[in-house]
Write a protein that binds this DNA or RNA. Structure first.
Length: 528
RNA sequence: GCGCUCGUAGCUCAAUUGGAUAGAGCAACGGACUUCGGAUCCGUAGGUUGUAGGUUCGACUCCUUUCGAGCGCACCA
């Protein structure tokens, strides 16, 4: 819709302009403040310019009226244009809001270490990544979703050790000296018992088995993570193992060295990340020859860029923000365009329950488990609330709100609007086929506004994806649902003169709600 | 101390990325045809957008100052 409008205006004005929506639909459906920017150049008042420009538009086709108000030029769409679009949308539900783009994008998210279950912090990045994936794919981008598995290094060793010691303490009943650092959650003890089942008790007799337990435990945790994700409807196209990329280190390292971006000092190899704005240079190879974590990420990003996507998006927890500079520096040093990498940060989440801080799970080792929250409020509510706020703001919410079945609960509210439309169709004993070709004309002001709002979904999706701000979708769904509830309360549909027209209008609203919800991974309810 | 992110109604958050009178929900108060599902809707009240400057036709948005919060500042991942 916006595309068509832009085309038409472009053709008439023959210059660049900003197209926006008026704050009040009373003015029109679209508006441009172009007269303000022309005022200086033309040495005339914006008001005069706006009036002049308005007369250039013909009001036979797509626009019903083009009016100047206080320097703004306002465009009102014609009913026949809106009706055509509505009919098309109803007949092509799966294409509503879709588009084509050539850009290919590698979207990496979650990538939690396979050393424990997912906690609530991971959930925010997870649902955000998944929503971007769904929206972007719908918009026609070629997106690949990927999970990077840190299956090398200390943490996995620590996992093995923790299971081993838990087994000795709880299964062999021998006294154990716990080291300073280990994984504390009760899930470790559970794992030890599973290990006993699957591998036999003898595994805890010899510390040589720790290595084996590490790999075994890592696989188990990855399985758990996948099932946690599956519970909220998230799956990945590919998992990339850190370990499997290690063979490529020499090649990456050689390129860095040849570009003179590394140096040796104190027996270690450093990368000159300060050249590109990092606070200090970073070690990539330790004195004993083992590569650092950064080395792993250098290989991984080298590998990513070799795969030749147009764009790379990483979603990281906000606590990793300090890492962006060095990774971007490394990408640049490897000879790639680092601006192709976008890092989105998911800020911290704090949960309340009945106004009190949510109890940490002992099972998880003082984290809030994502699976606990999901079993309390469900996947839909979790998604909706996490996607309702800008990802870079700190978020606090009370999970009791999402158990209520009323206005407090936005998931419920939006679903209710959708179900309501279904109920009306049932009451009227009509189906979509009966009304899809009814012409929407001579609508009341309110009906026309509602129709227009419902048809905005495509541009909302577009905007949300481009700005990587998924809360625009949830905001839109809430306001569209509100508009429907309001209209419903003020207008009788079934049995009225305009029954067929209003049913069609409602069908468009329901369509928009349904597709919008689908974009954030929620299945719209037919009845409550 | 340095860096990143953030500061909007009592609370939780929006604001078309520089545009028209800064909007929703909650909480408070007052209302709605004996209902196409009242699981909804309408109204009232609530703001110097943390502070102080600057940029311009125009600033919640950009720049500078200052205060406050969170996070980060590993040869851990």
């Amino acid at each position: 819709m916006k595309k068509r409008v832009t085309e038409v205006i472009q053709k008439t004005l023959q210059r660049e302009f900003v197209l926006e929506k008026p704050t009040n639909l009373f003015f029109g459906h679209y508006a441009t403040p172009i007269a303000f920017s022309l005022a200086k150049e033309l040495k005339k008042s914006p008001i005069a310019i706006a009036e002049e420009l308005c007369s250039k538009f013909d009001t036979e086709g797509i626009f019903q009226a083009v009016t100047p108000i206080k320097g703004y030029i306002n465009f009102k769409l014609s009913e026949s244009f809106l009706d055509h679009y509505a009919t098309w949308a109803l007949e092509h539900e799966s294409e509503f809001g879709s588009d084509t783009h050539n850009e290919s994008i590698l979207l990496e998210y979650v990538s939690a270490n396979p050393t424990g279950p997912l906690h609530i912090g991971h959930a925010r990045g997870a649902v955000m990544g998944d929503a971007l994936y769904r929206i972007g794919t719908h918009l026609g981008y070629k997106i690949t979703s990927e999970y990077y598995v840190n299956d090398a290094g200390n943490q996995v060793d620590l996992l093995g050790l923790s299971i081993y010691l838990a087994g000795r303490e709880h299964i062999l009943n021998v006294a154990v000296q716990w080291p300073e650092e280990f994984y504390r959650g009760e899930y470790i003890v559970d794992l030890a018992f599973v290990a006993k089942e699957e591998l036999g008790e003898a595994i805890f007799h010899d510390e040589k088995n720790i290595k084996h337990l590490s790999v075994w435990g890592k696989d188990k945790m990855l399985e758990l993570i996948r099932s946690n994700l599956a519970d909220v409807g998230i799956s990945f196209e590919q998992f990339v193992s850190e370990k499997s990329l290690y063979g490529q280190w020499d090649a990456s390292f050689t390129r860095l060295r040849n570009n003179a971006k590394t140096y040796e000092e104190g027996g270690k190899v450093w990368i000159r990340s300060t050249d590109l704005g990092d606070e200090k240079d970073r070690v990539v190879v330790r004195e004993d020859g083992r590569p650092t974590y950064l080395a792993g990420d250098i290989i991984y990003h080298d590998n990513k860029f070799q795969r030749g996507y147009d764009r790379y998006i990483n979603i990281w927890g906000a606590d990793h923000h300090g890492y962006i500079a060095r990774v971007k520096a490394a990408i640049n040093f490897l000879g790639y365009d680092e601006s192709k990498l976008e890092v989105l940060l998911a800020q911290m989440v704090s949960l309340l329950k009945g106004g009190e801080p949510y109890k940490m799970s002992k099972r998880a080792g003082n984290f809030i488990l994502m699976s606990d929250v999901v079993s309390e409020i469900g996947s839909d509510a979790l998604r909706f609330v996490f996607l309702s706020k800008k990802s870079d703001t700190h978020l606090e919410f009370d999970i009791d709100v999402f158990k209520q079945e009323d206005n407090n609960n936005p998931v419920f509210y939006v679903n209710y609007a959708h179900a309501r439309v279904n109920q009306i169709f049932a009451k009227a004993e009509k189906s979509l086929q009966d009304i899809v070709h009814i012409k929407l004309e001579n609508l009341s002001e309110e009906a026309q506004n509602l129709l227009f709002s419902a048809l905005l979904l495509p541009e909302v999706l577009d905007d949300a994806f481009h700005s990587r701000q998924v809360q625009k979708v949830t905001e839109y769904l809430k306001s569209l649902a509100a508009a429907l509830h309001k209209f419903y309360n003020e207008n009788r549909v079934v049995g009225s003169e305009d029954e067929a027209k209003l049913l069609k209008l409602f069908a468009v609203v329901a369509l928009s709600l349904r597709v919008g919800l689908r974009m954030i991974g929620i299945h719209a309810k037919e009845r409550m």
